[in-house]
């Protein structure tokens, strides 16, 4: 996980594809496919520009972007 940003995915809310669209939408490659599972890349998490594109693909709560320095 990143030092500054932690991105959490709830696959159960990412119907019907388990969040595959995230991989393409993120401009800084926070998301990657590991076998069939969508995972986050720790190094790239810190590159997150807080653009919010990943938040609008699935229902609220499916993806949560946490700014650890604000917590």
């Amino acid at each position: 996980m990143g030092i500054f940003i932690k991105v959490e995915i709830d696959p159960s809310l990412c119907a019907p594809d388990g969040g595959r669209k995230l991989v393409n939408v993120c401009p800084v490659n926070v998301f990657a496919l590991d076998q069939d599972r969508v995972v986050t890349d720790a190094e790239n998490e810190d590159e997150c520009t807080l653009c919010g594109l990943c938040l609008n693909l699935y229902p609220p709560g499916a993806v949560v972007v946490r700014r650890l320095y604000r917590e």
Binding site: I3, F4, D46, E47, T49, L50
Partner: peptide, 15 residues
């Protein structure tokens, strides 16, 4: 330039 991204980079490098 994004202020927050530069700040992250500097802090991360030091850490």
């Amino acid at each position: 330039t994004r202020v927050d991204l530069v700040a992250r980079g500097v802090i991360k490098g030091i850490l």
